[in-house]
Structures are given as structure tokens and as C-alpha cells.
Amino acid sequence: MSFHKKTVGRLLVPVALGVAASVAGMALFSQGASAATLSSSSVAKGVSSVTYGGTRGSSKAPITTLKLNPSTIKLGHTLFVENCSSCHGDAAQGTSRAPNLQGLGAATIDFWVSTGRMPLADPTAQAAIKPPRFNRSQTLAIAAYVSSLASGGPPIPQVNLGAASLSAGEGLFSTNCAACHTITGVGDALADGVYAPSLYTATPTQIAEAVRTGPGNMPRFGTSNLSNQQVADIVKYVKYLQNPNDAGGIGLGHVGPVAEGFVGILIGLGALMIAGYWIGGRAH
């Protein structure tokens, strides 16, 4: 008889633990739910400072041009000769190894140098994002030098996010950008070693520069494709994607069902199989 009490007691352990874990789970998910409301309300708070949808909060121009200081051209020339000319030529006229940069505009130079893509680490592969070699004023000096060689090309844009619309940006982003960069902006591999990079480290200026200059395989969107206002809207949405409303717990890298499948099978089913192994009998 005493066996019985022990047996029942032993078998009640999983029941008790399961109930306890369920209650804990409920406590957790009610937190998750309140986190959802919290984060949505924090977004709602953002509305008071900037109005989304249709109207923009600021009457200022959505994109202004950064004026480059002509006195930095000399420094830019020095830096260019030291770091860039071995491939692009002394006057950025291009060589058999690298393209002509004259007339591409300050935005092109700023994008490639400020994202660390230039100087190039591996000329056989797509230029990778690296920690930039130059500081901001050096980068602008190089841009000033190259754009002084020939006119043309887009200038460096400065985005006024206050004049941009987040929801208009979502519509433009999903139409023009998501087909390569994915809808969450995480980026992905395209054909033949080419990839659409993640947008999560880009600054507003770099995003606008990429749209206007079309680096690498990316198409170039001129002012007749996307207005300055629309570019600013896209920039605002990309900045949002860098820190989006991630309600519902730990975000799984925004890569979709691949990561979810691994969590569901390894953590979900895995935990339950361990639980079953613990509760159930074993070979004897």
C-alpha cells in the first residue's frame, strides 16, 4: 500500500510541474501581451510629434543638399592619391581595374567610402560593408575632391525625417525595395554570389544616397522615379525597420519561417520530448 502512495505521489510531480509551468507561461504571455500594448502605445506616442499617413508634420524640405567646403579639396586630393588612385587613377579617371569616378557626384563617393565598402577588400566579390577607413570630414573631403573634377551626379542628401511619412514609406518600400532587400530589410542572397545587403546599419544619408546613385547591382532611382519626398518617406520606414515594433517576444532575426521552424522543432518539440523521456518509462 505504501508503494501506492509513493507511486501516486511520484506521478503527481509532472502534473504539478505542468500546472506550475502553465501558470508561469500565462504570466509570461500576459507580459508579452502588455509589451505589445506598451510598444504600440509608444508608437502612438510618436504620433503626437510626427503625423503619419497622408500629411507630413514639417513644412521643411524633405531632403536638403549638403554643401561641401571647397577648402577641403586639397586634403581630399591627398587622401585620394594615397588610398584610391592605385585603382581609380590619379584623377579618378578610371583604369582597367576600376571605373571612372568623374561626374558620378558627391553622393556616390560618400556612400561607398562612408559604408566602408571603399577601399575594396576583395575585388573579386561584391563590395562588403566594413568599418569605414576615414572619418566624416575626411570622407567629405574625398567627395569634395572627386566632385570638383567634373560636374554632374547627385549631391549628398540630408534627410529631414520630420517631413517624412512612415506609412507612405511602407508602401514605397514594399513596392520598390522588398523584392531584393526583403520586406523586413534584413537582406538576402541573390544569384551568382550577389546579395542585397541588410539595411539595419545604414544611416539616413546612406539610404538616400543608395536610392539616388544605385550602387553595385541596385537600380538607380532618379527624381522622375521617386521624388525627394518619397525618398525621405522610404528612409523613414527603413530607419523604423532598424528598430521596429517587435511585439510578441524575442524577434528571430526577421528571416521568417526558417528560424521559426528551428525554434518550433528544437526548442518546442525538443523540450517536450525531453519531458516525455523524463515522465515515460525507459528500456530495462
Binding site: G18, L28, G32, G249, I250, A271, A275
Partner: peptide, 22 residues
């Protein structure tokens, strides 16, 4: 019965801790 509660617990924990299909 205990195993049912454990299953419910694991799924509730997943639902509360890991984002799925945002």
C-alpha cells in the same frame, strides 16, 4: 494528464517568449 499540462506550458512559453510571423 501531467504531460498535457507540460505541453500546454511549453507552447504557452513559446507563444509568450518567441515572436512568430510578425
Amino acid at each position: 494528464g501531467g504531460f498535457f499540462f507540460l505541453t500546454a506550458a511549453v507552447i504557452a512559453a513559446l507563444g509568450g517568449l518567441f515572436q512568430i510571423n510578425p
